[in-house]
């Protein structure tokens, strides 16, 4: 949308076009467009029969900048943060030089689509996975920045979240490079745009609000008041209330801390459900809420009936005693 027209026309490449790297000599055949944004267009391509994603831009510096981040991510042991970087090169399209990089093709639905398809029970799983990845990024001095559902793809099976688009990824302590208003704490008047771990954690909170409100919502009063109200109004979010307030208020200093508290609240909620299940086994947990109210009403009715019976018993006992008294007095 923000992309200028020259980039769009310059980088519009039809399926079947071979992209030849000027420096490394690799060839990539365009299969289809995967998406585009402010920084370029991403294509699905084939290289020696393997499917890989190729991002191109007429702005070589933005390509270089993203490559820098991906190279740094590659050094982090034991996990894959962002897509794996495979190649960096220039493509000469006529007299124009178009810079591109090639990365692992991350196949799967984006976060909102995934939750929509597979159900709410996946929210906590996905958020826990995301927080682990963010923790690793933060430990390595990076803040992801432009965290939003479109930049989160769920691979699988088994389902595993992956961050794409490192265009906003910023060195901790610097000004955030790129952001999207809805997920930006500055927009809501809840903090600065200086990159720190809690900047990303705010965005995680807003991603959860985005799950509850797929169309998002615009700022009215802004601030915590408006966000609190939106959380209160949502049924899906009620179990995450405490964590959301803290994330949006910037009260978590690290992803691992937020992850820990999320796990803990899930556990207490689980034990609560199990004790409930013990007293009255419910075949369908999803209908818990409605069932609970039904049961309570039934209980109230029963106790009303019980009251009448009690009164009758007391009355009959009293009358029996009365007859006994009369009988004895004779």
């Amino acid at each position: 949308m923000m992309m200028n027209h020259s980039l769009k026309s310059l980088c519009k490449v039809s399926p079947g076009t071979p992209i030849n790297g000027k420096w490394h000599g690799n060839q990539y055949k365009i299969i289809k467009e995967l998406g585009y944004g402010a920084n370029g267009i991403v294509y699905l391509t084939s290289h020696n029969g393997v499917q890989v994603a190729l991002k191109m831009s007429d702005n070589g510096m933005s390509i270089t900048s993203e490559v820098n981040v991906l190279k740094s991510f590659a050094k982090v042991q034991g996990s894959t943060l962002g897509p794996v970087l495979l190649d960096v090169d220039d493509w000469m399209s006529g007299s124009d030089r178009i810079s591109f990089y090639v990365m692992e093709y991350i196949k799967g639905p984006d976060l909102l689509t995934f939750i929509h398809q597979r159900g709410e029970s996946w929210i906590s799983v996905i958020v826990l996975q995301l927080l682990s990845d963010l923790q690793k990024m933060h430990e390595n001095g990076w803040v992801f920045g432009d965290l939003k559902p479109e930049n989160l793809i769920i691979m699988g099976p088994p389902p595993r979240i992956r961050c794409i688009d490192v265009g906003g990824t910023t060195i901790n302590g610097r000004a955030i490079k790129e952001f999207t208003e809805f997920f930006d704490r500055g927009y809501w008047g809840l903090g600065s745009r200086k990159a720190d771990p809690s900047y990303d954690l705010f965005a995680v909170g807003m991603i959860m609000l985005n799950i509850a409100y797929p169309k998002r919502f615009t700022k009215t009063t802004g601030g915590m008041d408006q966000l609190k109200l939106m959380i209160e109004k949502s049924r899906e979010l009620s179990m995450y209330k405490g964590i959301l307030y803290k994330a949006l208020n910037g009260q978590f200093s690290s992803a691992v801390q937020m992850r820990g508290e999320l796990l803990q609240s899930l556990q207490t909620q689980q034990t609560r459900t199990t004790t409930k299940t013990k007293t009255k086994p419910s075949p369908q947990r999803q209908h818990n809420v409605s069932q609970k109210t039904v049961t309570r009403q039934a209980y109230r009715k029963k106790s009303n009936k019980g009251g009448i019976i009690e009164t009758l018993i007391v009355l009959s006992v009293i009358s029996m005693l009365y007859f006994l008294y009369i009988w004895l007095s004779f």
Binding site: W23, M61, T64, S65, N68, V88, A175
Partner: peptide
């Protein structure tokens, strides 16, 4: 210019630009 450097060498230049921008 930066673009005439091989892609692998551009990274450091970009770091300088980033640093200046900050």
């Amino acid at each position: 210019t930066v673009e005439d450097l091989p892609p692998d060498k551009r990274g450091e230049v970009m770091e300088v630009v980033d640093e200046l921008g900050e």
